[in-house]
Write a protein that binds this DNA or RNA. Structure first.
Lengths: 225, 225
DNA sequence: TTCAAAAATTTGGTTGACCAATTGCGGCAA
DNA sequence: TTGCCGCAATTGGTCAACCAAATTTTTGAA
């Protein structure tokens, strides 16, 4: 299926806004209206049903689900590759600057002792990473655990999207022959500062340490580092 | 298609982890392995392809795409109803507190003159809203436009998810007989302050005005307002 | 023996016929 | 007149046959 049928059905849905219990015309009628074969239409409907956008009942019809609310977000692509494709490194960083200081602040208040131990362990393993790919895995896990420790499920989900996008953007720039981060790599001390602030339960310190870390990362990126 | 075929294929993929260029067995071979008809398997593969998980090439085969990165985000639920179901009002506000001051700051730098005129128009219409449902529509559009004006596609997408969740959470609390916002409603002045700062291109002022607006909203919520 | 073109095979994609589930209408009994 | 049941029509779902694209093998010429 080319994306054509799916986008055509989406466009049609957007132009045919109805109440949330809107019943679509039968497939055999809608398909020719949209210039599609019934099979093509069915594929698009299948994807939309899997997205939770529609409900299809044999013998009854196909119904739109809670259109006004679902539309608001279902047009948001969570295909991380698509998001990464339209996100530059600095844009990804801007999203991190928005989310991660807030998450660090919340983590200082909510992290469990076990989570703090794990963060300290990850911080140490990053210093010993044998190459950049291992370092990046550990770095993503480090930031993911901070986000999880914050205790806000919605913010955690948003962070996971951003973390996924960021990883793809970073992988596009990594040269596998670049070896490993050296001992003076700026992030090592910054990660230490973050974990120390979390351990002290210093929420403003944790926020400041995370902001400093991200700004330092942006500076290194814009310096071509 | 019951969810059975799709989840069966997902489980099989999870147990058969391979390198990112993993080529799946041909449909005619994999279907009987999974106890599915070829048609059932094809529907599951279609959904997974739409999610960006797979790439299917006629005459060549079906390939897994960047599993380690895609997995990071595909387990994130973007069904706004599901997200709303596990998000309380204060948690939704925490997500807004993280995102919207940053977006307001960026909007002050990037908004077009046309977008500023539209924001001013929305701000005025909100003062005249005949009931809460109209007010909420305008309010969502107001915040959506600020997010769009910021010029960062990833942050805009994140905001749309949050805005969708927030709308559902708010609708659960709205009593339709509550009438309309009164003339002294705190948000009226706060929206004015935000738009004024944007018009002045005052990015720190815009950030502060948005923060104040959100804190005021939280205070009203926790006071039972 | 090697290389290029043609043929055969393999793979995912489409189609019309038919199947399964639901709805609505008409007829009949109380 | 009302309620229930059976049947036909309608709706989405499945299937085997066939189609389109890519890959592999075979053939023929140099």
């Amino acid at each position: 299926m080319s994306g054509g049928a799916l986008s055509r059905v989406r466009s049609w849905l957007a132009s045919e806004r109805r109440a949330e219990d809107f019943r679509l015309p039968p497939e055999r009628i809608l398909a020719p209206q949209l210039g599609l074969s019934r099979a093509e239409l069915r594929k698009a409907l299948l994807v939309l049903e899997a997205e939770g956008r529609l409900e299809r009942k044999v013998g009854s019809g196909t119904y739109l689900r809670q259109a006004s609310d679902v539309e608001l977000a279902t047009s948001v692509s969570t295909d991380v590759n698509v998001l990464a494709g339209r996100t530059g490194p600095l844009e990804a960083m801007a999203a991190r600057v928005a989310l991660e200081p807030e998450l660090a602040q919340m983590a200082a208040l909510h992290a469990s002792p076990k989570q703090l131990l794990e963060l300290r362990r990850l911080e140490r393993e990053m210093r010993a990473a044998p190459d950049w790919s291992v370092y990046e895995d550990l770095d993503a896990a480090f930031h993911d655990l901070i986000a999880k420790s914050a205790g806000n499920p919605l913010l955690y989900d948003l962070h996971r999207i951003v973390n996924g996008v960021r990883r793809i953007v970073v992988w596009q720039r990594l040269n596998p022959s670049d070896g490993a981060p050296q001992g003076g790599y700026h992030s090592f001390k910054e990660h230490d500062d973050i974990v120390s602030a979390l351990e002290r339960r210093d929420h403003t310190g944790a926020r400041a340490a995370m902001s400093a870390h991200l700004k330092s990362t942006i500076a290194a990126m814009t310096a071509g580092g």
